[in-house]
Design a protein around this nucleic acid. Structure first.
Length: 284
DNA sequence: GAACCGGATCGTCAAATATA
DNA sequence: TATATTTGACGATCCGGTTC
């Protein structure tokens, strides 16, 4: 299929289902893009193809706007657009707005950034179910990125630490004690480091190196313990920050919904008024 | 008051992604 | 390419509400 496709559904890469994902790559206030009023779709089942004509004329500007600019997507030759009406939650007056999925050509893999690549460059060779499941999920852009694109950079950059009353205290424990992690006498070893696999509380595992002292007690070397502590502390902070950003992001979305609902109401009112005016003029 | 439930929050791990 | 950062997922814990 040639030409551009304009649709309010998802236009991202394989598996992308977040309607906001496209917002991250659009630039508010950028040059107006070309509107194609006729879109040809190849339907998956009965109807081999259908033409959809837009009610907006090519030289008219649409009054319906997304929060950011609508993304145009070039469909490479040989690709098929699947239309999944039943799953759509966005309703038009005559049904549901159709969602577009881009099916890659055979032997073409799409990575998590929506970029296609060859089998050799993409695959890791690991075919475990967990891996497959993870690969099905598409990682969204970072909340900071999304907020920046939505014009909320000041929110994204406003860290807890820079807010009055929200200072985060970061302190490193100067020296961590050498608590034996394995009861003495359970393992007889020579001197030197040994490796032990341990399972974490969250189901994950870790490889821990340990050493034995003269009394036969086993312990984790201080350097390693400290490194781990530091890593955990950093990640703890990062997780907090990430959750905070996620909350901001959701708040931002809710605000956008409210704004768009108001706009929608206003437009409906305007349309109603114009229709009445038109009818009045017609009868005169 | 004890038991149960559901939601919120947290720490951790692992993988994806960004950056030096 | 190595290292740092970000974030989804998971399990643990806490807390308030509800039921018995």
């Amino acid at each position: 299929m040639e030409g551009m496709v304009e649709e309010n559904g998802t236009t991202g890469g394989a598996g992308t289902t977040d309607p906001l994902a496209s917002a991250s790559s659009s630039t508010p206030g950028s040059t107006p893009h070309v509107v194609t009023s006729i879109v040809q779709l190849t339907l998956p089942s009965q109807a081999p193809s259908a033409q959809v004509q837009s009610v907006i004329q090519p030289n008219q500007q649409s009054v319906i706007q997304t929060a950011s600019n609508i993304q145009s997507v070039q469909i490479p030759k040989g690709n098929v657009i699947l239309v999944s009406k039943p799953s759509s939650v966005i309703h038009t007056t005559q049904g549901t707005l159709q969602t577009l999925q881009i099916k890659p050509e055979p032997n073409t893999l799409v990575n998590t950034q929506g970029q296609s690549c060859s089998d050799e460059s993409c695959g890791s060779g690991d075919e475990s179910p967990k891996r497959k499941y993870r690969e099905m999920l598409t990682r969204r852009p970072s909340y900071r990125k999304i907020l920046n694109d939505l014009g909320g950079a000041e929110i994204a950059d406003n860290r807890m630490g820079s807010r009055p009353g929200c200072e985060t205290e970061v302190s490193l424990s100067p020296s961590l004690s050498f608590a034996p992690v394995i009861p003495a006498g359970t393992i007889q070893t020579d001197s030197g480091l040994h490796t032990l696999a341990v399972s974490g509380a969250a189901g994950g595992g870790a490889i821990v190196q340990y050493a034995a002292n003269q009394d036969g007690q086993f312990y984790v070397p201080e350097d390693q313990t400290r490194k781990r502590e530091l890593r955990l502390m950093k990640n703890r902070e990062a997780a907090r920050e990430c959750r905070r950003k996620k909350k901001e992001y959701i708040k931002c979305l809710e605000n956008r919904v409210a704004v768009l609902e108001n706009q929608n109401k206003a437009l409906i009112e305007e349309l109603k008024t114009l229709k009445e005016l038109y009818c009045q003029q017609k009868t005169e």
